[in-house]
Design a protein around this nucleic acid. Structure first.
Lengths: 194, 194
DNA sequence: CTTGCAACAAACCGATCGGTTGGTTATTAT
DNA sequence: ATAATAACCAACCGATCGGTTTGTTGCAAG
């Protein structure tokens, strides 16, 4: 990797971390520069402005990370158990800082969806993609599921519950509440089967 | 109501609206002053700083509004149907701007829970109170419910799903998705009964 | 009549924001 | 060797932030 590429990647990684912790609007460029050990000129050589940097973080850091965590769960032979294992795994592996900071994509959705159209559309695309992944996974085992299920609605419900769970554990700084919600969600998911 | 009281209330109402639309950190004092038609001296006569103003909005505007919307649903003879009616009513009465802005308390939770301890604790208190209300309402009809239910977990799950639903409809600007999640949630809630 | 305080207004403060500008190296092509 | 370009630095810009200070009203008690 060239020096320039390395610098760019470092900016992306550190900015992703800052946004995750403080949100986009409250993330300061000077903080990023200090942590990267570069000047403002360097940053503006690689990115035309703060918003473009945010978009790049979204697409090159958050989206791949997001897909990499959901994909394996949905590619199991039994996606129902795949999802449940995935969720309970999230509980167990969750350190406090993660519980506090929440899902980067959901955070950006809450903060930026009605502030900037560029963010909103990117988030929307990602949500539809995730919904599609879940629907596909459930469709594959449709014969084992209860009839007359609206799989798309089910998928939205699953995602909404997970996001809501992280939101709840944010204020309590307590992953037990996350666990409670996940337990109920798993019971709901397993109940989808015949 | 005295003039001073009126001014204070106007500040609270307009600030509540601004925070609802832009979040706390991005809400500018000068915008509030312009909309109120007052000077900065007037604002700082009534509130010692921006944070205290935010706390006052939380306690004097958001919390009463929040309780006033949930309480009636939970005081029905059948809180199960009370909640379902409440949720579907939210869908129908929801204008686009509400869908976009989300629940003020959930927004503040997402934005401020890990930024300011004062907000976090106030949000936590409110969440526990709501959880208690739901648990109490469900306990009242415990005989009609399935046995071995962890009512507190159920309550958290309900709240998480509703919050997640608003989050999803934010990015899509589409209350249909909210409707989908609510439909699934109602089916989950009704399934609590024997 | 005037003294005093409640209720504001207006101007100003330092700090910080995102962004720009003009230069300085290091590398590569000719 | 030289020209060009990629990659970066340091200083600076206007705008805006939350917050302070000083000054000005209107009313109410003594």
């Amino acid at each position: 990797m060239s020096d320039a590429e390395q610098t760019r990647q470092k900016i992306l990684d550190i900015t992703a971390d800052e946004i995750h912790h403080h949100g986009f609007q409250s993330t300061s460029l000077s903080t990023i520069l200090n942590r990267c050990g570069i000047s403002k000129g360097a940053l503006y050589y690689h990115f035309s402005n703060k918003l473009e940097l945010g978009y790049a973080v979204f697409e090159e850091v958050y989206v791949p990370m997001f897909l990499a965590t959901w994909q394996p769960a949905l590619s199991q032979d039994d996606p129902i158990e795949g999802l449940c294992d995935f969720f309970t795994g999230m509980c167990e592996s969750m350190v406090c800082s993660e519980a506090v900071c929440g899902c980067p994509l959901n955070n950006l959705c809450e903060e930026m969806a009605n502030v900037d159209e560029g963010f909103r559309l990117r988030i929307l695309t990602m949500q539809q993609k995730l919904n599609g992944l879940i629907v596909d996974a459930l469709s594959a085992i449709e014969d084992d599921l209860r009839p007359n299920l609206q799989l798309s609605h089910v998928a939205y419900f699953i995602v909404a519950s997970v996001n809501g769970a992280t939101s709840l554990s944010k204020s309590s700084r307590n992953k037990e509440i996350f666990q409670y919600v996940i337990d109920e969600l798993c019971s709901y998911i397993r109940n989808l089967k015949k």
